[in-house]
Design a protein around this nucleic acid. Structure first.
Length: 828
RNA sequence: GCCGGAGUGGCGUAAUGGUAGCCGCGCUCGACUCAAAAUCGAGUAUCGAAAGAUGUGCGGGUUCAAGUCCCGCCUCCGGCACCA
């Protein structure tokens, strides 16, 4: 029983002690157990920066910790791992600045991060710790690349890509913030360099469709939908006027083929104009060439997103309308984007605001072909474009038909074809930097035909070198390491490159040749696109993941991280997962069944916490002063989990008080019966806390625990039964203190492997209820009655109350509404 | 411009269409103390002495009853944006 009065609550002593014990007894080690339901709870693993953690970082980790402890107590076999996303530009730049090798810096930073995390008392299974920079890990990142390569999902490109002149590397579209480098804010340039690109667009449709399978926040799904940007429409060809049959016609993409008869010009982007000039499709014309070049230069100058004046010029060339065979003037226009669709649009001024503006400005005809009412003559003097639906006019045999309904027929008549267009672009996957996974490909001689490295030669190790500064020429620093680049080997019958060394000579009779390695590395997103699978089988060197284990643990049940990953990590990981699904490595179509976004913790000044502003709160300091349990409780209590809220050390004090009051309450615990009121309170609390944790409403779960504590404190003596249940409910939030107190009353093992308390719905309600009395919708009195009292009794009692009489005497009561156990309203 | 989300005390916030402000912070008063801190107790939306009235961004509406539902606005946050 009660082992004497408690000592003063010494969080430091208690927390250190339990970290050691839990470690020693491997309390949180996870093993597969097909007899129990599994629950895979995952945090977005951190990039271990040199600055260490601030109090905002662990908020999500605390939530998954609470959730996973709760699920374990409910009988689930829980997988809750942690690791490090340690490749990438930030790590490399940190290393350059501090004059250490990235691998040294990473090791140090990981160590520091782990130390900080351990102080918070997380229940991670550290035996499954992973690190994306570990060759045993990136072997499999490279392996996945080879699968992409062999399926034609990785291709080389010399198209101009986004080049950050400050980071000295190419960037994917997703790494841009408008037209600036998302990392350093520098305006990116278009630069044609050789790149590896992943064909993510091939999966656009499936990624869009399968969003419906996911229990994710609506905002994230919406962001992904916007990012993928699907448009249904048609591709329609306009033959160049006077061109020979060998010249390919000009294709335009349109979502409004129904307006085809309203085309009064066709506009092409300045880039396409230059190409047409070069190919002599447009007659040599220095004026137009200068004009197009100017438009390109201007566009590069203009602030991103700014709406600029529409400008254009007639090129002198014509195209032929696919149905009417009319000659349509070909214009160059600054509002036609070169990298969406075909870089050409059909101009329908009457039914597109942009085309209307352009046509007005240059005196181009406006021809109405859709009229909102049937049999209404067209308004030949439109004041603005009509983008709505209606009936076709001026459209020959299609006149009178509903515009949408006629689309298929018009496309057919124009010999066009239905087509879907996406905003999403293929993923620029190569980086011209040192600190990333080498892309496992080789080239023979000067050829640009790539051969995949044979699987038996994986991983392709990143060479340990002194000098790894970027070259700035667009080449990776690896290109400057000839002893790494130049290799000997042969091409196997499977078409793979097999390395030949002194230790591993070629089979007799094989012709060994010189090859050079691909020197680009992978972007930081590579390692994080599949890491959730590695935790399932972290030591496997034969397979990416054992199928039985994968089948047991997949998918991740709850994934927690910041909303800023909506269109990068969460898109890339879904893409890779679907490829792995197609080749049978994983068994579920989606990696993350449920996603919960964690809101930022802002500094108390309302700004982001940042070293730059000097407003960072270090969790180590908070834990030193208040303890990890208080920090955990406060971060869960501060507000809705997904909302960003400012840190307040004042409010932090409240959490600490709560912990101390629970601690002190142990002194009042006695082996006595639970009275009815306390029983109801406990059952209500069990119900509420469980439901709230499941729903990630930790703030109201903690509030309920406080309500419960307030109730227990009012008792002269606290029944052991009640206190026990309370500790169990609090254990996921405050694992150290509850463990310490628990073992004062129990001979048993840890509180964290106990059964979660069960509640009886019948016991969550008391015998009496408070019923509000309203007269004319206004609150006038409160009745305390037996629960489930009849409507008649409630009304009778209410009518006898002075406070009610006062309002209903002398007025006509038209109606009486009674909501059982809640409210009675006299309608007057 | 399109899409998604949010506006409630001094502050963080809470409310299956059913007593708006639970819980916490702060503040006020009281107890304990030589004193202070800590702790404990009482109070704390606004106006009003009270009765009562008012009150969830603004304006309408539906309903016996609206923070919650509907219509029209305003503001803030996030995504996309000359995307054809």
């Amino acid at each position: 029983m009660n082992k004497g009065r408690s000592e003063r609550y010494d969080h430091k002593q208690i927390e250190d002690k339990w970290h050691e014990h839990w470690n020693a007894m491997s309390l949180y080690r996870t093993q597969e157990d097909p007899s129990r339901p599994k629950c895979y709870v995952l945090d977005m693993f951190p990039y271990p920066s040199g600055d260490g953690l601030h109090v905002g970082h662990p908020k999500g980790y605390i939530a998954t910790d609470v959730y996973s402890r709760f699920k374990r107590m409910q009988g689930f076999n829980v997988l809750h791992p942690m690791g490090w996303d340690a490749f990438g530009l930030p790590a490399e730049q940190f290393a350059l600045k501090n004059k250490v090798h990235p691998s040294t810096a990473v090791a140090k930073n990981c160590h520091r991060f782990k130390e900080q995390l351990e102080k918070i008392g997380f229940n991670y299974d550290w035996e499954r710790e992973i690190n994306t920079t570990d060759p045993n890990y990136y072997k499999w990142t490279q392996w996945i690349f080879l699968r992409l390569f062999e399926r034609g999902l990785a291709y080389q490109s010399n198209e101009p890509i986004n080049w950050c002149p400050s980071c000295l590397t190419g960037l994917a579209n997703e790494d841009l913030d408008g037209d600036r480098c998302e990392r350093c804010g520098t305006k990116v340039e278009k630069k044609p360099i050789r790149q590896w690109v992943l064909r993510i667009t091939a999966y656009a449709d499936r990624m869009l469709e399968d969003l419906d399978l996911l229990e994710w926040p609506a905002s994230i799904k919406e962001s992904q939908r916007n990012w993928i940007g699907k448009s249904e429409g048609a591709m329609i060809d306009f033959v160049h006027d006077g061109a020979t049959t060998s010249v390919a016609p000009l294709s335009v993409f349109t979502t409004r083929p129904d307006t085809l008869f309203g085309v009064t010009y066709v506009a092409i982007s300045p880039e396409l104009t230059l190409r047409y000039l070069a190919e002599k499709i447009i007659h040599e014309n220095a004026e137009i060439e200068d004009f197009a070049k100017n438009l390109i230069a201007e566009a590069a100058d203009v602030e991103y997103g700014a709406v600029t004046e529409k400008r254009g010029a007639f090129t002198g060339a014509y195209v032929i309308h696919p149905i009417t065979q009319a000659k349509i003037p070909l214009w160059v226009a600054n509002y036609v984007l070169s990298d969406y669709g075909t870089g050409a649009v059909m101009g329908v001024p009457a039914h597109d605001v942009r085309d209307f503006d352009f046509a007005k400005q240059y005196g181009i005809d406006v021809l109405t072909v859709v009229s909102p009412q049937k049999d209404t003559p067209s308004d030949t003097h439109l004041m603005e474009a009509y983008e709505g639906d209606g009936y076709l006019i001026n459209s020959r045999e299609f006149n009178g038909r509903e515009n949408r309904e006629a689309i298929v027929a018009i496309v057919k008549a124009a010999k066009g074809k239905q087509q879907t267009q996406y905003r999403l672009k293929d993923w620029v996957f190569a980086r011209q930097r040192y600190w990333g996974e080498p892309i496992p490909l080789v080239f023979e001689g000067d050829s640009d035909v790539a051969y995949p490295v044979d699987e038996s030669d994986l991983p392709v190790l990143l060479p340990q070198v002194e000098f790894y500064e970027p070259t700035g020429t667009g080449e990776s620093p690896l290109a400057g390491i000839p002893e790494w680049v130049n290799v000997k080997g042969y091409i196997t019958e499977r078409g793979t490159f097999k390395l030949v060394t002194n230790e591993h000579p070629a089979p007799v009779g094989t012709k060994v040749k010189d090859f050079r390695r691909e020197t680009n590395t992978m972007p930081q997103w590579a390692g994080s696109s599949w890491y959730y699978l590695r935790y399932i089988d972290p030591k496997n060197n034969e397979k990416l993941v054992d199928p039985t284990l994968e089948h047991y643990w997949s998918p991740v049940d709850v994934y927690v991280g910041g909303a800023e990953h909506a269109t990068r990590h969460l898109i890339y990981a879904r893409f890779w997962h679907k490829v792995l699904y197609d080749i049978g490595v994983v068994s579920k179509p989606e990696p993350f069944a449920r996603l919960q976004n964690v809101g930022l913790i802002m500094a108390s000044d309302g700004r982001k916490m940042s070293k730059r502003y000097g407003n960072v709160i270090n969790p180590d300091d908070v834990i030193e002063t208040f303890g990890a349990d208080s920090l955990r409780l406060y971060e869960m209590f501060m507000g809705p989990f997904d909302q960003s809220i400012a840190w307040s050390t004042d409010n932090m004090v409240g959490a600490r008080r709560f912990v101390e009051r629970v601690w002190k309450l142990a002194d009042k615990v006695g082996d006595i019966e639970e009275d009815k009121l306390t029983e109801v309170l406990l059952h209500q609390t069990i119900a509420k806390v469980g439901a709230d944790i499941e729903a990630f409403k930790f703030n109201t779960a903690v509030a309920q625990l406080m309500i419960c504590l307030n109730g227990l404190e009012k008792l002269v003596a606290v029944p052991l039964r009640s206190y026990r249940a309370f500790l169990l409910l609090l254990a996921p939030f405050a694992p150290h203190m509850t463990e310490e107190v628990w073992l004062r009353f129990e001979e048993s093992e840890s509180i964290h492997i106990q059964q979660w308390p069960i509640f009886d719905p019948a016991k969550t309600v008391g015998n009496t209820v408070a019923i509000a009395v309203q007269v004319g919708g206004k609150h006038r009195d409160t009745l305390h009655l037996e629960r489930d009292a009849s409507k008649e009794d409630v009304e009778k009692t209410a009518r006898e109350r002075d406070l009610v009489k006062k309002w209903i005497d002398g007025v006509e009561v038209k109606k009486v509404i009674v909501v059982p156990n809640k409210i009675i309203n006299f309608v007057i």
